[in-house]
Amino acid sequence: MKVIITGATGFVGKNLSEYLNSTSINVESLSLRDKEWRKQIDQYADAIVHLAGKAHDTSNTSEEKEYFKINTDLTFELFNEFLKSDIKYFFLL
């Protein structure tokens, strides 16, 4: 089984990746920061676990639009790519 994880470098993503790898599930990380992320989706994966998002701004410089763009628009874009693929499961956490 192969699982694609967005946000794999975050706290939850690192721990989930480590756990899944320990159970012999092949984990592939997908960075949505890469402008070519759509081309990097493995169409033969079994699932996408979407953990990426903007949650912290310790310098308090981000605009509300940026949160909406990353947390909402990018999620819709990823889900639309999922719908076009043969991937069976999409988890949004």
Score class of each variant (00 low, 15 high):
H50R: 00
R33M: 08
L30E: 06
D34W: 05
T58Y: 12
A55P: 00
S85L: 00
K39T: 11
Y19T: 06
E36C: 01
R38H: 11
K14N: 08
K84S: 12
V27S: 06
L83K: 15
G53T: 04
S85M: 08
T23M: 11
Q40A: 11
A47R: 02
F79T: 03
L78C: 11
L93A: 13
E18D: 13
S62Y: 07
D86F: 00
S17N: 04
L83T: 14
Y67F: 15
Q40Y: 01
Q40L: 14
L32G: 01
S22E: 11
I25M: 13
L32N: 08
N71W: 04
F82K: 05
G10S: 05
F68Q: 12
K2M: 12
L92V: 10
I87Y: 09
D73V: 12
K35V: 13
L74E: 09
F91T: 07
Q43W: 02
W37D: 12
K2S: 09
L74W: 07
T9W: 02
I41H: 05
T72V: 15
G7A: 02
R33I: 09
V12I: 15
F68D: 13
I48M: 01
L32A: 08
E18S: 12
I5Q: 05
D73W: 02
S17Q: 11
H56P: 04
E81W: 02
V12C: 02
I48A: 01
Y19M: 10
T75F: 03
A55N: 09
E81K: 01
T6R: 03
L32I: 01
E28M: 10
E64S: 15
V27G: 02
V12A: 09
F11G: 04
T75Q: 08
T75C: 12
L51W: 03
E66D: 11
N21A: 10
L20R: 00
N26G: 07
I4N: 06
F91H: 07
I48Q: 00
A52C: 03
N60F: 14
Y19S: 04
L93D: 10
E63S: 15
A45P: 08
G13H: 01
D86Q: 11
S22G: 11
T6G: 02
K39A: 12
N26H: 13
S22C: 06
D42H: 06
L83F: 00
K84G: 05
G53K: 05
K35M: 04
R38F: 05
D73A: 13
D34E: 15
S29E: 05
